[in-house]
Simulated assay, not measured.
Amino acid sequence: MDQTKDVIKLVIPAKAQYVGVVRLTVSGIANRLGFNYDEIEDMKLAVAEACTNAVDHAYRECEDKGNIDVTFHIFGDRLEIKIKDEGNSFDIAAVKKRCGPIENQLPFTSMRERGLGLHLMETLMDRVDIHGGQGVVVTLTKFTNRDEVDQDVDSPAKTESNR
């Protein structure tokens, strides 16, 4: 199993005005790791969605809002972003069942509101893991170099000369 190269931790109050701080942090880290503009924008949107869900749902019934812990795990081949709250949990299977599959032929306005954020995160990231219990932990993963050819694959020129 590969080891984490670096870990960066950020703790914000579970308030909407601090979600932008997380977006800026994602942008800075992802840029440093060499992700392209579109990948960075996708990550910012997915992370903002996960944080906004924590702001809107995790501490909904709490008078004193809690915190959102955002941890960036940097690996050689990927960036994993964990968004954790200690508020109200939810049943992920029930949300997926309730929202059902997204039907492309239907207009966007007819999509069910619940679960759309989850679909968005799954579309924008390479992997999304959600665990409930005491709060919710959302792990968003984006791989580096996933569209590139492996280093040990023969180039077309080399393959062509072997015929």
Rank of each mutant, 00 (worst) to 15 (best):
H73E: 14
L116Y: 03
P13Q: 03
C62N: 15
G87K: 00
V55E: 00
F90W: 01
G20E: 04
A30K: 01
A46M: 08
T141R: 08
V137G: 02
V137N: 06
V47Y: 06
D42H: 09
L33W: 00
L120S: 10
T139L: 10
G87F: 00
V95R: 00
R32P: 11
N36R: 06
Q134D: 12
V137L: 03
D126T: 08
G135R: 02
L33S: 01
C99W: 11
D85T: 01
V70D: 00
L33E: 01
I102C: 11
Y37E: 15
G20L: 05
G100V: 06
A50C: 05
G135S: 00
V128S: 09
V136S: 03
K84H: 09
D126V: 07
T139H: 10
H57V: 10
R98P: 12
K97N: 13
G66K: 02
K142H: 07
V47L: 05
N53Y: 01
E80F: 06
V128A: 10
T139K: 12
I130D: 09
Y18K: 09
I29L: 04
D64R: 14
V21H: 11
R98I: 14
V128E: 06
P101H: 15
H57Y: 12
P13T: 03
L33P: 02
Y59S: 09
G20Q: 06
S89M: 02
I12Y: 00
P107N: 01
V128R: 04
K82A: 14
Y37R: 15
A58L: 08
A58T: 07
G133R: 05
R60W: 09
A16S: 15
D91A: 01
D69V: 12
D85H: 03
Q17I: 06
G87Y: 04
D126N: 11
T71P: 11
K44T: 07
I40T: 08
N31D: 15
N53H: 04
F35S: 01
P107H: 00
S110C: 07
I29K: 05
D91E: 04
C51D: 01
E113Y: 15
I130K: 05
H119D: 07
G66Q: 04
C99G: 09
T141P: 07
R127C: 13
A54F: 00
